[in-house]
Design a protein around this nucleic acid. Structure first.
Length: 1097
RNA sequence: GGGUGAUUAGCUCAGUUGGCUAGAGCAUCUCGCUUACACCGAGGAGGCCACAGGUUCGAGUCCUGUAUCACCCACCA
């Protein structure tokens, strides 16, 4: 035997031997009680990661333990075709831009080929973990049997009316051109402007202004109070210049008079009686200015000095610079204003020099000019040649009209912060006046339907009330886009807003005609466009440029997911049907809820039951169709002649060419092009792998339902819950008794493993390095179900060391046997010869002779019981921890050392083999290796029965326990006094001591019994069971260690105080269990004796 | 925003219906290559068990509150 365990020499060979033995195959005709686990199928094109390793380790431990405990175990392996993920990988692998570069047939062929290659790799990886799987039953979610199962349940659900085709809101990935399941959507953080938009008098908030281009219901909260307020900008006062009194005051530097006093005066007078057109222009200009010039002082200057002149059509004013055609400031180029045109309209021109303009607040003037020039400005016609009278027609009543009145929910109006958010583009100094207060319901009545401006023209909206509107958020009103938002969709359905279900965006992610000028733009472009346009139109009242929110992203293409309405197949979870097993009316949702509520399925850890309910209670219909090719094609056939929809039984579906339309008999049928969500076939896994739909098959009869389902807690919902749903629906039984959820594997610091962080560990490399056993232990010990599984180099190293320790213990056993005179008996002899023993351990074959033998046999009994109990309760971590410490701390550190004093090789071999059995489920390879070495026969350790010894020896337990204490104490004294380990110290017992015990102590503590010079001695007070009652005295030939004695005294005193207090407490003596009280008394007595002797020393 | 869990030694965590003088692994320190194992052995040091209350004879454990962290769900004007 090698000095160190070399896992590479053994693991592959052993696994091959297991497979060859045929023992891994579950016997469906066995009369043993079954224990079934169906392996959660890894993605066939994926790679095994440590999460899979953890899964395999846990399940393998359970399987081996149950097998050794006499069950007929059946662990079914398999892989998943992972529809979307695989399709992606294949597309990438082939270097395609899209799958359409190939025909459907060709593409599927490539997928199959690719999947087969990858399948072999992943199966290899699974074997490396040592999993005791029944490979003869290996399944694949996309093989023929599973396809048959899929078609069978599809037909059943369809006939029960639970599968329906409908127009529903789905997550549409523009990049991938496919529907995504909710769980396939990833969320990313994005900062986008958040707009508050005027809709008539209302204000709504949105990050998606591009959707605000169409007729829409405007929803208010029915019971919340709303206020109509009037806003009057405060324009008359000139704020003080921030430059006033400083040398930097630009006003002082001005070399010209910016306006003609007389003109201004004239204008002011005129302003008193403005025409409606003038008023409108005026307000438009103010609105624009606010956005252009956030600096209030500056803005006011402009208003007071210049804009006033615009105000009166009869006194128009425009500027020109030096007669140049350009003026550049801050990189913006302004066109020359055509003097001729201006003059034509009677505009005055003021000339600036460049120097005067740059660095002068007056420069802003040009921006105004630019604004006026822009086509969309209401003033444009004035400049370009339009007719101002045009604006007189449909003027809102500016004063008392809708343009400067706003309807806000009272909460927003009262809350200055909220209000500021909504209205931050308006002048803060404006005055506000509350005109009236009314509830949402009253608003609905009073306002009803009316027109408002959108970026794409005039639209109508109708005011409605609904509770979804949160009166504490924003302005308290919202408009909805039924086809482009899940909540809006629900609301629309609830309110039956049929005419508002229309698309604004197409499946390519482009805006439709309804978006007016934005038609054909991508959503992103349209969003910018709409924002800008609305700003220009003065439709914005507030804007939050740093609004951060989460956006749904496609996990494949990374593009933003658009909620869209599309024809899809759904499973109706709330539709009633008659349960064929009970005859009761029920729904899929109810059945799924019942599973856990009525304890048909137990979830470990239990807290996930709560999470399960939370999810099920909010369950929506499940969209099962996918626009991809790689998957189970939806078994629905559309008649090309009469358009009928046909679903056939699975048997007929096998030959699509022979199918005829059920309605018109035509055989001109076309199968639905879409495929099923990958979870559809996965949901059948627990029974489709066991013969279903043939419920009379031996496998189904014997092994269904499964005993446990072990998987990551991250797929509780979309897999576990759906398995429960389908299993109960199709088989009438819940698919498994227990769900064991493990956590995510993460590094030592609790961080998720990921390639980008570089903290990922490849299981194969790890196994190569330290062996599968060490990997298994690392993944299993120190973990709690449902919690993260921390794993790191140190931990792994520790368990590798343990495996080596076990190996060396085996080596020691082997050496003992080799050198033993009894060796021949083992090689060819019959151990039954040893049956005369009266000890019952392991059928009473080999006698436990010495104290140590009896002690370890007794301990083994206790540990075995605990391990059995832990494993039965799925407490794998605790079981592993106990085996680890039993083997290392007790067997190796104490028993093997003690064994050297009084060898008993046959017994040693027996107990060691038993320990190997006990440890086998956790560390199958090393135990099997040692089993082979030590038994030298063809049996496998897994064929042995799991230890359930009943040997007990209380006396040996006590004596050995005391002995351990004494030895530890002596060792401590030696270490603290720096005694050379080679030196033997003399000790002297005050009492008579059993020679066997003494021999052990001498060996273990490196001491010799003899006369001790009392002046040089340290006293130890010990109690040795079986040597008379009470404490006895042990002298050891070492100078007294004052410090140690003082420490011991203090420790004892503390203990005594605590015990005394406890016993002095009448309530304690009365209420606490009697044994406990007696124990405390005993402890106190011992402690006091010990203390007294220590002090007297 | 709604929910769940966590907080114990420098680090990673055990601590199962309350009985604890609070444990383990790693790291650290001291001593030792003693013929199973240096992937080892012996020993030491290291803790107001997050904080504040409460229940109890007794609280790391149960209850309430606070703080911090993690995860899940919803994402919405």
């Amino acid at each position: 035997m090698d000095k160190a365990y070399d896992h590479q020499k053994f693991e592959n060979k052993i696994y091959e031997a297991w497979e060859k033995s045929g023992l891994m195959r579950a016997d469906e005709n066995s009369d043993k009680e079954p224990f079934t686990i169906v392996l959660p199928p890894p993605n066939v094109t994926g790679q095994l990661h440590l999460g899979h390793s953890a899964m395999l380790a846990i399940e393998d431990i359970m399987i081996r333990h149950q097998k050794m405990s006499g069950k007929e175990v059946c662990w079914v392996p398999g892989t998943d075709h992972a529809a979307i993920a695989t399709e992606n990988v294949v597309i990438k692998h082939l270097g395609l831009k899209s799958r359409e570069e190939l025909s459907r047939e060709e593409f599927l062929k490539e997928c199959r080929k690719f999947a087969q290659e990858k399948h072999d790799r992943i199966v290899h990886q699974i074997r490396k973990m040592g999993a005791w799987l029944d490979w003869s039953r290996e399944a694949y979610t996309f093989d023929e049997e599973r396809n048959f199962a899929v078609n069978t349940i599809f037909e059943q659900l369809y006939n029960d009316g639970l599968i329906v085709r409908g127009h529903r809101l789905i997550n549409w990935s523009v990049g991938a051109q496919s529907v995504l399941a909710d769980d396939e959507v990833e969320w990313g953080e994005e900062v986008e402007p958040f707009y508050y938009i005027k809709c008539g008098e209302f204000i709504i908030g949105t990050v998606r202004p591009e959707t605000k281009c169409a007729d829409s219901p405007l929803i208010v909260n029915p019971d919340a109070e709303y206020v109509r307020v009037k806003y009057t900008p405060k324009l008359q006062q000139t704020p003080k210049s921030p430059y006033q009194g400083t040398s930097e005051n630009p006003a002082k530097k001005r070399k010209f008079i910016p306006y003609d006093k007389n003109l201004t005066k004239f204008a002011r007078e005129n302003r008193k009686n403005p025409t409606p057109a003038e008023k409108k222009m005026w307000y438009e200009i103010i609105d624009k200015l606010k956005k252009e010039f956030p600096n209030k002082w500056l803005r006011q200057r402009i208003i007071d000095n210049y804009i006033v002149d615009f105000y009166s059509p009869s006194l128009k004013l425009v500027v020109e610079i030096d007669g140049d055609s350009h003026f550049t400031k801050e990189g913006i180029e302004y066109d020359k204003i055509r003097t001729e045109t201006l003059n034509k309209y009677g505009l005055n021109v003021i000339r600036f020099t460049n120097d005067e303009i740059i660095n002068s607040p007056d420069a802003v003037y040009f921006k105004i000019s630019k604004f006026i020039k822009e086509k969309n400005s209401p003033l444009a016609p004035l400049i370009e040649g339009g007719n101002p009278a045009k604006f007189e027609n449909n003027l809102d009543e500016r004063d008392g009209g809708s343009i400067n009145t706003f309807i806000l929910v009272k909460n927003c109006w009262k809350n200055p912060e909220e209000r500021k958010k909504v209205l931050n583009l308006l002048d803060e100094d404006g005055t506000w006046e509350v005109l009236e207060t009314m509830t949402g319901n009253e608003l609905v009545e009073k306002i009803g339907e009316f027109e408002y401006d959108t970026y794409a023209g005039k639209r109508k909206f109708v005011v409605m009330a609904d509770e979804v509107v949160d009166p504490n958020k924003g302005s308290g009103a919202m408009t909805i886009s039924c086809n482009h938002s899940a909540d809006d969709y629900d609301l629309g359905k609830r309110k039956k807003l049929d005419k508002y279900f229309f698309d604004k965006i197409d499946f390519a992610g482009k805006m439709l005609k309804i978006a007016g000028e934005a038609e054909g733009m991508s959503v992103k472009e349209a969003r910018k466009f709409a924002g800008k346009k609305m700003e220009e139109m003065g439709l914005l009242t507030g804007i939050d440029k740093n609004y951060s929110h989460r956006v749904p992203l496609c996990y494949r293409s990374g593009c933003v997911v658009e909620p869209m309405v599309s024809p899809q197949w759904f499973i109706s979870v709330e539709k009633e049907f008659t349960d064929k097993f009970t005859g009761e009316k029920t729904t899929l949702k109810k059945l799924t809820q019942k599973a856990v509520r009525e304890k048909n399925v137990k979830i470990i850890p239990a807290r996930f039951e709560k999470i399960y309910f939370q999810w099920i209670d909010n369950l929506r219909d499940w969209c099962i169709s996918r626009q991809i090719w790689w998957g189970h094609q939806i078994p629905v056939f559309y008649c090309q002649d009469c358009q009928a929809e046909n679903v056939f039984d699975a048997e007929s579906t096998k030959n699509p060419a022979n199918l005829c339309c059920k309605k018109c008999g035509s055989n001109n049928l076309k199968q639905d092009e879409d495929t099923l969500d990958t979870w559809f076939s996965s949901a059948l896994w627990p029974f489709s792998t066991l013969g279903w739909p043939d419920e009379n098959s031996r496998d189904f009869q014997k092994f269904y339902p499964n005993s446990m389902m072990e998987t990551g807690h991250d797929i509780l919902f979309f897999w576990v819950a759906r398995m429960i749903m389908f299993a109960r629906y199709a088989t009438g039984k819940y698919p498994f008794e227990t769900v064991y959820l493990h956590g995510l594997v993460c590094d030592e610091k609790g961080q998720k493993m990921s390639k980008s962080k570089g903290n990922g560990i490849d299981p194969l490399e790890l196994i190569e390095e330290v062996g599968a056993d060490a990997v298994r232990l690392s993944l299993v010990i120190g973990t709690t179900p449902g919690n993260n599984i921390p794993i790191g180099k140190n931990k792994i190293k520790g368990y590798r060391n343990f495996v080596n320790k076990l190996w060396n213990a085996g080596r020691f056993v082997q050496m003992q046997l080799d050198s033993s005179p009894l060796a021949p008996l083992i090689e060819g002899g019959n151990p039954a010869n040893f049956e005369n023993s009266s000890n019952k351990r392991d059928g009473g074959r080999i006698k436990a002779k010495s104290l140590a033998d009896k002690w370890i046999a007794d301990r083994f009994t206790q540990i075995s019981r605990e391990i059995n109990e832990h494993l039965n309760k799925y407490e794998i971590s605790l079981a592993g921890d106990k085996i680890y410490h039993f083997i290392w701390d007790e067997f190796c550190d104490w028993y093997l050392e003690a064994h050297k004093v009084e060898p008993n090789p046959l017994f040693l071999r027996e107990i060691f083999l038993d320990i190997l059995k006990l440890a086998h489920p956790l560390v199958p390879f090393i135990t099997e290796s040692l089993w082979k070495v030590l038994t030298n026969d063809d049996t496998f350790i897994v064929e042995q029965s799991f230890p359930q010894p009943d040997f007990e020896d209380k006396k040996s337990r006590e004596i050995f326990g005391d002995l351990q204490e004494i030895v530890s104490e002596i060792r401590r004294i030696r270490a603290e006094n720096k005694v050379n380990p080679k030196d033997k110290l003399n000790i002297e017992f005050a009492n008579e001591i059993n020679p066997e015990t003494l021999k052990l102590i001498e060996h273990l503590a490196k001491v010799a019994n003899g006369k001790v010079d009392k002046k040089q001695a340290t006293k130890i007070f010990h109690r040795l069971a079986g040597h008379g009652a009470g404490n006895s005295e042990l002298l050891i030939e070492i100078p007294v260690d004052e410090k140690a004695v003082a420490a011991e005294i203090k420790k004892l005193e503390n203990l005594i105080t605590s015990l005394k207090n406890r016993l002095a407490n009448k309530n304690y003596v009365q209420s606490a269990p009697k044994e406990l009280v007696a124990e405390s008394r005993e402890k106190l007595k011992n402690a006091e004796e010990k203390l007294a002797k220590l002090k007297s020393n």
